[in-house]
Amino acid sequence: MRAFREAVERRDSAAIEALLADDVTFVSPVAFAPYHGKAITAAILRGVLRVFEDFRYVREVGAEGDRDSVLVFEATVNGRRVTGADFIQVDEHGAIDELMVMVRPLSAATQLAEAMGAQFDRIQQEAAAAMEKGSA
């Protein structure tokens, strides 16, 4: 999905969030249970932007307009090289309704889990603030 790729490459968290469906499901590479909803998913993705260094997409799989696509990326987390993939599914309106991320190797996934764990209080606060703002 070109719009998501471009928003991530610009590190534009507002543009990323605008592409998410309200009922989006985020499947994390380091958490057992998926996360549901735009507020928590957007907050997690902002956290990811803070912890990934030297992030770049290296391959795109799927034709523009397909409901499913894959973006392969490389980055660094705490000095560890990460290779991963964003599996993106869009709904009938073109909004992202599922985003599943996979990363390798295990040592990099461990570094990612630690880095995101350190961000999680902030992520939860951002999500709660967004939900409160949305209900006001």
Rank of each mutant, 00 (worst) to 15 (best):
A130Q: 06
A75L: 05
E114S: 14
A31P: 05
M102G: 09
V8A: 10
R56E: 09
F26C: 08
A3S: 11
A43D: 03
L45N: 08
E9Q: 03
A63C: 01
V51I: 14
V48G: 06
D23C: 06
D54K: 05
A109E: 08
M100A: 14
A127F: 01
Q111T: 05
A43H: 00
A115T: 02
V70W: 07
M102W: 09
V61Y: 07
A129E: 08
A31I: 13
G37Q: 10
E64Y: 05
T76R: 15
R59L: 14
V70C: 04
D91M: 01
A108Y: 08
R10C: 06
R2D: 13
I16K: 04
A15V: 01
D22W: 02
V77S: 12
I44E: 11
V90S: 11
D22L: 03
N78M: 13
F73A: 13
G94L: 08
L112W: 02
L112F: 04
D121M: 11
A75P: 00
R10A: 08
I40D: 05
L19T: 00
L19V: 03
R2H: 06
A3C: 01
E126Q: 05
V72D: 11
A21E: 04
S107T: 15
D91Q: 03
R10P: 01
K133G: 12
F32S: 15
A15P: 03
L112M: 07
Q89L: 11
D121I: 11
V103P: 01
V51H: 14
G65H: 04
E132C: 06
G79Q: 09
A75M: 03
D68H: 14
A7Y: 05
L71D: 12
G62T: 11
D86V: 00
Q111F: 06
R80M: 12
E114K: 11
Q124T: 09
D22M: 06
M1G: 10
R5K: 07
M100D: 13
R50I: 10
R104K: 14
A33F: 05
A113G: 13
F120D: 15
V51Q: 14
R10S: 02
A130I: 04
V51P: 09
M100K: 13
G134V: 12
V101R: 01
E126V: 02
P105T: 12
E6Y: 03
A113D: 11
R122K: 10
E74H: 07
V77P: 01
A118D: 15
A108M: 14
A75K: 07
T41C: 00
R81H: 07
S107G: 15
D66S: 09
A31D: 15
A33W: 02
A136N: 12
A21C: 04
R67N: 04
P105S: 14
Q124H: 13
